[in-house]
Design a protein around this nucleic acid. Structure first.
Lengths: 234, 234, 234, 234
DNA sequence: TATGAATGAGGGTTCATTCAT
DNA sequence: TATGAATGAACCCTCATTCAT
């Protein structure tokens, strides 16, 4: 019964991250491990021990790189959020101005390809921001702000929106997208029951289809009544 | 043990809910206690022990009325959701057709008056639905479906929307409203820091103002392009 | 969600056990319910609520007939023990003196037909005797003593044992039989693992076969060395 | 809470079991604490909190060394079982072949010196095996199997038994000994009542005396009819 | 006699985080 | 820098028994 847990632990010499480079690498390994686990189970079901084990480091080591569990996942969210913005920007440049549907299709695919982004966005405000040093949240928010501003401006041009409407749309997406994603993913038994009840099947929604509809309406509205954004009461 | 809050067990006679009526009352007491606590701290920080203590009953008694912690809070959400629908319906009838702004004002006030509704909506899909007997969730969903259908139809008339747009709007609100509410309520220290940073003050949003903007755009869009809801691809 | 648990509860008029006869009947119903449940799951997994529900009475009613949970099951044990003695005595009279094997076969079948007796014997000393009013245990023990004495004497004749050996054998059976029964019934996963391990399959024993062997040896020994029972040191 | 037993957290330095050796020591401390408690009250009345407190560690620490409460006590049983086998083997070698009574005396003393072994044997099959990872139970069973085989063989020689009778006897002891021990140790009030009732004093048995009688009969039987172990029907 | 609402002490276990090594 | 042993508060829920009705 003596465990021998160290068995699968390869030679530890050189495992000490002395240079900044090595530290970055170690940090990335931990994040990658968290990412892997997140594709298997929801955020709430992942423990720091598991992340550490999956990354091949000791539990305490994770805390050398991230002050709290939430900070780790916030970092993960940050990276994937930036990746999403990259794809978003590329999308924006690639598609023709006249093709709104095509652009939306691309956007939906970007989200569909990043299920973990949807997951983490859903816990960002409720959880992650609550146990991360403010300074770290600010770094994240600042990155976000820059991308929102830049991509928002591009978006305005691309979709022929009034000034401010682009970044507003992006801000709203932060609220809409995870909300819709959670609605679209009920626990399996509930989903089955909903599908079986004719009067409730309306609650089984398709994330992409629903987001498409919402976006179409929103963009149409922003184009039609650009002044609403500057309503004096708002 | 140490505390013995309201110890000495005040006279227990009459504390026994023996009729259906009394049982309903007791049930309501427990819900009211949960509600009270929810106005003090977030859902995640409330334990069943606290709820029971606040209701003046033993811990086990709570479980006589609700099978799980989540079921208790789902019930709380259900009641407040229905209350909101009542107000919503009344609003709909009271205001003149021509006065969109006034109607939205009323809607925003309905939400503002129910901060706990916003809180619970935010954990509905992520938490509450995960540890409640499916049958109970279905009861809730069915109530919701009926109200969404009825109020949605009224909404269509009132806002001159195309068929289906009313209930769609209500469905979307379920995703949008809690998302926006969470964005609007960062932890105090973070909020302070955001306000202090000029480039980040855009992240400090005002729930009502933001929801107004979003609704105006959404309604305008639905009015302009009613066909988007029936897009073949959606 | 109002429960309506009383649905399946038939007309309660006349359900009040006023006469001694009715009380006996009610008592038997409760015991029968416990028996039914005991055939489905082990003693430790049966709650008083379940017994009451299965008997169609309220929880409190069970306590009108039995002072404690253990007393209820002790009563169940008592009845089945007496039933076993009846069969044992019959067996003793029916079989011919010369046929030891046949008699043992009958005995084994008696046990095999009463799995619940084996279960309850296993918790008699460790559990049941610990939370039953002493007076009730004494009643049980006295019944037992009488049967042991009587059947023991018959056994001595039948098996040609020395005086005292018969009741001794019966006493020992009380220790041996439940012990062997528990050994013979490991949890399913363990059983599977034991069978899969060649060196451990010896631990998967067959209750009847093992008891037969033990009895044969014991009886042979008692016949050979009758004086051991009266060893001055013992 | 109220107590704060050994509160003020005495100097924790050196309390960290960092080497395998120290871990073994810590593990033993926990086992020793459990053993101490077991001498005061029955297994069922001992909680993990108590064990941890008695060992001077935090509750969670116990779970670092044993996956479940049952696993802890199974380990305790295992160690004492092996100790008993050591004594048993020594006994076997020490005593002369001709002196059966002397050997049995030694055996009885071995048991009498290990009251906790008797206790734990009594819950092995009914409780311990039910909440311990199968792998751990197998380790225990394997150790047991080896000892049973080896000591069984020696026993056959010593007692001049037929092949297989030695290990069989040891197997049977696992069922007989705890059963007899439980019979011999009724709750104090019951014991008093039994002694006071002339017709029931037969139920107050002396563990050692009774086991001696049973063993004498069993050994005599096995010597007389060695073929019963290989009865085709068994 | 019958009911079933109420009790409340406990139960085992988990896990983010710390810190001695 | 890395480790992983140690912490301990916290958690949800159960259930035998009581007693007001």
């Amino acid at each position: 019964m003596t465990h021998g847990q160290q068995s699968s632990r390869q030679d530890r010499s050189g495992r000490r991250a002395v240079s900044a480079d090595l530290k970055d690498r170690r940090r990335s390994e931990i994040l990658a491990a968290a990412l892997r686990l997140l594709s298997e189970r929801p955020y709430a079901a992942i423990t720091m021990s598991e992340v550490a084990a999956a990354a091949g480091v000791a539990k305490g080591t994770s805390y050398l790189y991230f002050p709290t569990r939430e900070a780790l996942f916030l970092q993960l969210l940050a990276e994937h959020y930036l990746g999403w913005f990259d794809a978003f920007d590329a999308q924006l440049q690639a598609s023709a101005v006249t093709n709104l549907d095509g652009w939306i299709d691309g956007l939906l695919q970007d989200f569909a390809r990043r299920p973990l982004l949807l997951q983490l966005m859903g816990v960002l405000h409720a959880v992650l921001e609550h146990n991360v040093p403010v300074a770290e949240v600010l770094v994240f928010k600042r990155q976000l702000a820059q991308r929102v501003t830049a991509s928002g401006a591009a978006l305005e041009q691309r979709l022929q929106l009034s000034p401010g409407a682009g970044s507003r749309l992006l801000l709203w997406l932060q609220a809409i997208v995870p909300g819709l994603a959670q609605m679209a993913a009920p626990p399996a038994p509930l989903r089955a029951a909903l599908l079986a009840a004719p009067d409730l099947s309306g609650f089984v929604i398709d994330f992409s289809a629903e987001l498409r509809r919402l976006l179409l309406a929103l963009i149409a509205g922003l184009r039609t009544c650009p002044e609403t954004l500057h309503d004096p009461r708002a």
